[in-house]
């Protein structure tokens, strides 16, 4: 396996970059969409049920199904990586909307009331108090999304979108284990790196949670 890896290192590296792009970009876009949606779900209880139900239904659809059906809806080619990006963004949003709304709901009432009493407007309260306090919960959701995105993207190799998953399908076609192992390990490492980045960013964003040294 190590020999195979050394022979193919440049290719594995470029596949890893593609994989990181395909699973990382949706994470960022998904978070950007989920924040306002989650806030709406939190503010408007009636909308909340609809949003959460929709997100849940979206999450039930298997990834391969989404990869295949999205071209029908988007009018793209089946091999177009855009399909994967859109699909992963949808999953990320589905997962994070709920997390964001839960995180905002978990902000202690007394903190919210204190902010109101001190004259924070709705917007400043959200940005200055509620969102920062919801960061740990949102970050936990983001970590789950990151790990599952990396894993799901590899499935797209079945329909021919090239990334680390391609090593898996190639290895299987040749009934040859090394590329499969390398692809799998690279996926796990990539997931670990995403996880680590999110943990570090969360720590930087929440200095009040660090214990005094």
């Amino acid at each position: 396996m190590i020999g195979w890896f050394l022979d193919n290192a440049p290719r594995v590296w470029s596949l890893t970059l593609t994989h990181a792009w395909l699973s990382g970009v949706p994470l960022v876009i998904g978070l950007a969409i989920a924040l306002p949606l989650g806030w709406m779900a939190h503010r408007l209880p009636r909308l909340r049920l609809t949003i959460i139900a929709l997100a849940g239904a979206l999450y039930t659809v298997p990834s391969l199904v989404l990869f295949i059906l999205l071209p029908l809806i988007l009018g793209t080619q089946i091999l177009d990586p855009i399909n994967v990006v859109v699909a992963m963004t949808l999953y990320t949003v589905a997962l994070l909307v709920r997390t964001v709304s839960d995180g905002l709901a978990a902000v202690p009432d007394e903190v919210r009331l204190a902010a109101v009493a001190m004259g924070f407007g709705r917007w400043r309260r959200l940005v200055g108090v509620e969102l920062p306090l919801a960061v740990p919960v949102i970050s936990a959701g983001l970590r789950v999304a990151a790990v599952s995105n990396v894993s799901i993207v590899s499935v797209a190799a079945l329909i021919g979108v090239v990334q680390l998953g391609s090593l898996l399908t190639e290895g299987f076609q040749l009934l040859y284990l090394p590329p499969i192992l390398v692809g799998t390990i690279a996926c796990i490492l990539l997931a670990l790196i995403f996880d680590l980045v999110i943990v570090v960013l969360t720590r930087l964003a929440t200095p009040w949670l660090r214990r005094a040294a």
Binding site: S151, S154, A157, L158, L168, I180, C187
Partner: peptide, 13 residues
């Protein structure tokens, strides 16, 4: 964190 596709192929082989 193990991609299911990878797990499937590895176990199979």
């Amino acid at each position: 964190s193990i991609p299911s596709l990878g797990l499937l192929f590895i176990v199979l082989l």
